[in-house]
């Protein structure tokens, strides 16, 4: 086995030239098993959210006339801002990964905190939205639309919350010196999860909120 004298960190790229994927231990496939597992998990999550969106569409189509529905509660301008916030959190997440891959730990901390704050803002918006809807008379058991809507958006909110916990864990691990450029793959995996949560919201925002009611 050839040894490389004074090897440069495998995950370092020239500044401004983008970044390479995080290095990982050798595998038979040449691919990180952790990444394969994460993609398999995300593939299965498609089925979960596909089911929830389908149930929502079914429930909405079966909503009896006169009952409280989407037109009575949705506040599109407010939800648009929330959507934009979550979309921008994907940018800060990818910048955090880019920073740690280049070995810029201070930049990583700034972007990871920004991502968590944007995620927290989205969740705060969702809590506010749920509160307003409840006060307008739409509870979880009010009708079939309420049950499907709260289940779908609630599941998504739970995923975002778990993502925030993962981001904060990565920050703490970095501050303790246990997460650096050498194991940037961990940040890449958290990023994959975070971006997935974002694309699910892209679907929810269009199908649930913007499709003609």
């Amino acid at each position: 086995m050839s040894e490389v004298a004074n090897p440069p960190p495998a995950v370092t790229a020239p500044a401004g030239a983008g970044h390479a994927s995080a290095a990982h231990p050798p595998t038979n496939t040449g691919m990180s098993h952790n990444k394969v597992a994460m993609w398999l998990f995300l593939g299965s999550e498609c089925l979960l959210f596909g089911a929830l969106i389908s149930v929502y569409m079914f429930a909405k189509s079966r909503l009896p006339a006169g009952e409280i529905g989407p037109l009575d509660v949705f506040d599109i301008p407010f939800t648009s801002v929330s959507s934009f916030v979550l979309l921008m959190s994907s940018l800060t997440m990818v910048l955090a990964l880019s920073a740690i891959t280049r070995g810029e730990e201070r930049g990583f901390r700034v972007w990871i905190v920004a991502t968590a704050l944007l995620g927290g803002t989205f969740i705060a918006g969702q809590v506010y939205e749920f509160t307003v809807f409840y006060n307008l008379g739409l509870g979880y058991t009010t009708n079939i639309f309420g049950s499907a809507f709260y289940t779908l958006t609630g599941f998504h909110g739970a995923h975002v919350t778990i993502g925030i916990v993962m981001l904060m864990s990565a920050l703490v691990a970095n501050l303790r010196g246990r997460l650096g450029p050498r194991n940037a793959e961990t940040v890449e995996l958290i990023g994959l999860y975070w971006h997935f949560v974002d694309i699910v919201w892209i679907l929810i925002f269009t199908i649930i909120y913007l499709f003609p009611q």
């Binding site: 050839s2 090897p7 495998a10 983008g18 970044h19 390479a20 290095a23 231990p25 050798p26 990444k35």
Partner: peptide
Amino acid sequence: AAPTLEGPDGPLSAHAHDAVHEHPSDRQYV
């Protein structure tokens, strides 16, 4: 022979193709 680098938990694979491809720059992400 693919060069192998030592990481904290063992050797790191530098030949793996997903470790070689360059990703976009920050400007492209923006």
